[in-house]
Design a protein around this nucleic acid. Structure first.
Lengths: 162, 162
DNA sequence: CGCAGATAGTTGTTTGAACGACTAATCGAG
DNA sequence: CTCGATTAGTCGTTCAAACAACTATCTGCG
C-alpha cells in the first residue's frame, strides 16, 4: 500500500492517450535508431550528421553547395553549421571556397578524401536500415511514411525559426 | 559522366529504398517534434529530458526511484544521469537520499517545488501532442504505434549496451 | 548614390552530451 | 569468511549543441 500509483513502468506500455503514445513512440524509436546508427558510423570516424553532410555534398555538383542549402537538406537541423564544417575541413573531408557571385556565401564541397571516407558505406548502411525495418511489409512502410509526413508537417508549423 | 546521380535533393522527397525512407523519416520527424517540444518546455525552464525525469518521479512512490530505474524509463537514454540529476537537485526540483537496503543505490525523489514546476503542464502538453498528430485517424495512429514498436525492437537488439 | 532592411556566415560563451576510467558496495562460489 | 566478479553511481575530460550577438555583403526604395 505504499505504491498506489506505481503502474507506470514503461512510457510505451501505458494506456496513455493516442497522441501521447504516437509522439513518445516517434521520439523513443528515433533515439534507438540513432544509437544503432551511431555505432555503425563511429567505426568509420563519423557522426550521423557528418555522414549526412558528406552524402549531401557528394550528391551536389563539383562547385559544392552554399552552407544554407546544406543545412536545409539535413535530416537533423544543426544550429551551428559553421563549426561543424570547421571540423570536417580540419579533417580534410570538405573544402570551403568563396562564391564568386555573392560575397556572403561560402561554398562547401566534398574532397576526394571525403569521398573515400563514405565510399563503401552505402551498402552496409542500407543493410542495417533493412535490418531495422525489415519486418514491416511494404504496405506498412508506406503507411508509416504517410503518418510521419503528416506529423512532421504539423511539427514544422510549430517550430521557432522560419 | 562524373555526376550521373545528382537528383537527390531532399532526403524525404526521393525515391530512396523503402527502408531508408522509413529510417530517415523517423529521425526527421523526431527532430521536428523535439524542436516543437523544446520551445514549449523552455517557457517553463525545463528541457525535454528534465521534464521526463520529473514526470517519472511524480509517478513513483514517495521514496523515489533508483537512478537505474529512472534511466530505464526515460524516452531518450542519457549516458550521464548523475550530472543531469545534479542540475535538477541544484535547482531544488529533486532530492537525493541513500537507499537503506543497498548502499550502492541513490534514490531520487521529486520535491514539492519539482511538482509545482510540472503542475499544469500536462494539459497544454497534451494539446500540443494532439495538434501534432491530430490529423491522423485512430486507425492510423494504431498502425503507427505498431510499426514503431517493430522498428524499436530491431534497433534495441543492435544497441551497444545491455 | 545612400541608407534601411534583409541575408549568409562567423564568433563568443554557456550549457549539456559522450566516452571512459574510477570508487564503493553487494553477491556468489568455494 | 574472502576473494573475484558484478552492479550502481560518481568524476575527469573532451567535444558538440544551443543561444545570442556581431560582421560583412547584398537588395531595393527614395
Amino acid at each position: 500500500m505504499t505504491e498506489p500509483a506505481g503502474d507506470r513502468r514503461d512510457p510505451l506500455a501505458t494506456a496513455a492517450p493516442a497522441a501521447t503514445r504516437a509522439v513518445v513512440g516517434v521520439l523513443y524509436t528515433a533515439d534507438r535508431i540513432r544509437g544503432a546508427l551511431r555505432g555503425f558510423f563511429r567505426a568509420h570516424g563519423l557522426t550521423l550528421n557528418q555522414h549526412n553532410v558528406l552524402r549531401i555534398l557528394r550528391g551536389a555538383g563539383p562547385d559544392g553547395l552554399a552552407g544554407r542549402e546544406v543545412a536545409a537538406r539535413l535530416i537533423e537541423r544543426v544550429p551551428d553549421l559553421t563549426r561543424m564544417i570547421d571540423r570536417l575541413e580540419r579533417d580534410g573531408l570538405v573544402r570551403r571556397s568563396a562564391c564568386p557571385h555573392d560575397g556572403r556565401v561560402t561554398r562547401i564541397a566534398i574532397t576526394p578524401r571525403g569521398r573515400r571516407r563514405i565510399a563503401g558505406l552505402e551498402e552496409p548502411l542500407r543493410a542495417l536500415e533493412v535490418a531495422l525495418v525489415g519486418d514491416l511489409t511494404p504496405t506498412a512502410l508506406a503507411r508509416l511514411d504517410a503518418a510521419l509526413a503528416t506529423i512532421r508537417d504539423a511539427a514544422e508549423a510549430r517550430l521557432p525559426g522560419t
